[in-house]
Nucleic acid binder design. Sequence first.
DNA 1: TAGATTGTTAATCGATTAACAATC
DNA 2: TAGATTGTTAATCGATTAACAATC
Lengths: 211, 211
Amino acid sequence: MNNDKKISVAVIKRLPRYYRYLGDLLDNGITRISSNDLSKRMNVTASQIRQDLNKFGCFGQQGYGYNVELLYEEIKKILGLNKTYNLIIIGGGNLGQALVNYSNFARRGFNFIAIFDRNPKLIGLTVSGIEILDVAELKSFLENNRVDIGVLALPKDNAKQVAPILVENGIKGIWNFSHVDLDVPDNVVVENVHLTDSLMQISYAINGYVE
Amino acid sequence: MNNDKKISVAVIKRLPRYYRYLGDLLDNGITRISSNDLSKRMNVTASQIRQDLNKFGCFGQQGYGYNVELLYEEIKKILGLNKTYNLIIIGGGNLGQALVNYSNFARRGFNFIAIFDRNPKLIGLTVSGIEILDVAELKSFLENNRVDIGVLALPKDNAKQVAPILVENGIKGIWNFSHVDLDVPDNVVVENVHLTDSLMQISYAINGYVE
DNA sequence: TAGATTGTTAATCGATTAACAATC
DNA sequence: TAGATTGTTAATCGATTAACAATC
């Protein structure tokens, strides 16, 4: 195991995909797999798979390959999926509600415990059993509940205002759907989901670039 | 201008961010900017900015810097944002409806023209003025309308079934929110938005990796 | 003109792939 | 044991950063 240097983002971004493929293998009753077999299924090089996995440990066995279930469980632990997380959403609009309604997150241990909005028409409503609270209560809520991840699903100017409140009250991660870059301390993780940027990758690619 | 080799994905993924920062500068009435100034605002190296832009042309001027409006318009063209696109959503659930309701896409020229679902309770409903149609009509709709981009917002097994229908009927791009890798010909662009994977980046990072 | 700043080449850094000895 | 396949080192490839001549 090669543990002398920091693991790069490129490697970490590939882990969920390994996890997904291993889960599929498990579902299909496949108990062992070689890096070579897996590489063909995933369309990556076997070398990359072995390099990636060896960043975290020696999970394979010469002449045999990898035990699917064992590897699956290891990656689960590496990704922190053996724990559960409490999430709150700030912004109770369509996107916020869609995220709460998406049951796959809860299946992985990501539990939404509250939604906040400033729109009086939304406050008091219940979405998937979760009440929409007044954003004025955000601070006191954070003080009285364990909240791991804050989800920003509101316009960019509001996101910039809310982020510091989350940070000051001990949030560990921010899942940012607002179209703005947040400036937070190093100990707070920000993961951006910029949907507009993602769409632009498509428009770029279907045009080719022409002078 | 360095036009001898293919432009890498890394560069293209940075373009929307340049575009956004230039838009902000414009909004603030700033008419010129040097790569050095921009690099400080964006927290990247000036060298990278100049290298990136020069992949597409010589947009700057020695001793002056870049004209903000001109550069903004150039990147707009590069990203294909000077055109409009017709989109359909397959999957009229919460996520599909949230996407249709999000008006920022239309502002950039991405217009939703139909939603498809197989749930009789949804078929016939109208979301943001767009009717939810029976997915059985998908093929004929594609034959009779110009559709550029198909958005997959449905469970993975259904996504795998629908993708070939889109491909066979001339779709140019697929915006895939389903948690599955699609296998499509090279001339069809696939952009994945794997929200669960994104969340896992957060859970990984807030735990650190512990043996 | 002198100062500023680009466009671009060269140097560095990091990530991916290839190769193979170790070993199950 | 012989064959298979890992873990890991070495080679390659590509992306980022530094440097600077060109020039506005």
